[in-house]
Each structure stands twice: as C-alpha cells, then as structure tokens.
C-alpha cells in the first residue's frame, strides 16, 4: 500500500544493501534445499545387470532398481500376439507394443502403477496380465493401461541387452 512512498524513503545505499542481502539469502537457501536431493552415492547406483537365462516363457521375475520393482517378463507367443493385435484407438495411452518391447519376447517395465504407486499383481485382471489391487487398474500383456484410474501405461526404464542372457537396466 505504501509503494508510492517507499522509494522516497530509501536511497540508493539502502536499495543496494537490500538487494545484496536478498541475493545472499537466496544463495544460502539453495544448499539447504539441495541436500535433500539424491546424493552422489544414490545416483551412482543407477544401473543394475540382471541375468535372465533361467526365466521360462510365461514367467516374470522382479528385480529391484533404484528402490523400485522392475518386472522382466518372458512373454509367450500368445501374449505377444494379443499385445500387437490391439487397435491403438482402444487405448487410453496409445503406444505400439513394438515401441515398448525392443525384443518382443522380453517385456521390461517399472512395476509401479502409474496411478498412485502401488505394485500391480501379475497374471490378474481383465487382460490376464497386470492388475493393481489398490484402485483397480487393469493393464494388458504389454503393460498398457486398459481400464481403471491409472493415467498412463507402465513405465519402460532405460535398458539394454548386454548379451543374450543379460539385461542392463539404467
């Protein structure tokens, strides 16, 4: 309310002091905030290698990566066909199966429901794939959301095949 009056009361010296002081306060706050960000030891743990040689078709293994479960499923021919046959128009979050699984036999995804973070159950739900028990989200054999409150498909992490039997996640 007194913005018209203040400039009169504050000459250059005061303005400079306030400005410099404010800059310092701002700079002080950053370390106090940044300390809560992932630290360098956490960031360094960003890759995990998984041996998948013992996974049979139709089975899923779950590994931990960055504290989250990763589903690695060796899909059957039937599942792959189901996943590729879907019309993209029927999807809430349209995505081709071939974009989600580099090697159609292997589906690698973050096992965290995109709704509110629960872990979906395997071989369950309307699509006999994944079903989140918390709020009833149904995912298909490609991990795409088909029914329920989740907004997007299950996330695909960055991964690569180091060799035929080893997947490197991250």
């Amino acid at each position: 309310m007194s913005s018209e009056i203040k400039p009169k009361r504050r000459d250059f010296l005061f303005t400079a002091t306030y400005t410099v002081g404010a800059v310092g306060l701002g700079a002080t706050i950053w370390p106090l905030v940044d300390q809560m960000n992932p630290d360098s030891s956490v960031k360094a743990l960003s890759t995990t290698e998984v041996d998948v040689s013992s996974v049979e078709p139709g089975k899923t293994i779950t590994v931990l990566w960055r504290g989250k479960p990763i589903f690695i499923r060796r899909r059957t021919k039937k599942e792959i066909d189901e996943a590729t046959a879907v019309d993209l128009k029927d999807l809430k979050d349209p995505e081709k199966d071939s974009d989600r699984a580099k090697n159609p036999e292997w589906l690698v995804m973050v096992g965290v429901c995109t709704h509110l973070g629960c872990v979906p159950l395997g071989d369950k739900g309307d699509y006999k794939a994944w079903f989140c028990p918390c709020h009833g989200s149904h995912y298909d054999t490609s991990g795409r959301i088909r029914k329920g409150p989740a907004p997007t498909n299950l996330e695909i992490p960055k991964y690569e095949f180091v060799d035929n039997n080893t997947i490197k996640i991250g």
Binding site: Q35, S40, V42
Partner: peptide, 13 residues
C-alpha cells in the same frame, strides 16, 4: 562420512 562425502553440500552443513 557419508554426509561429508556424498550428501549434496553435506560437508558444508
């Protein structure tokens, strides 16, 4: 030691 080495600005705190 974790604070001093790994935490962001941990050594400063």
């Amino acid at each position: 030691e974790h604070i001093m080495r790994d935490v962001n600005y941990g050594w400063l705190m």
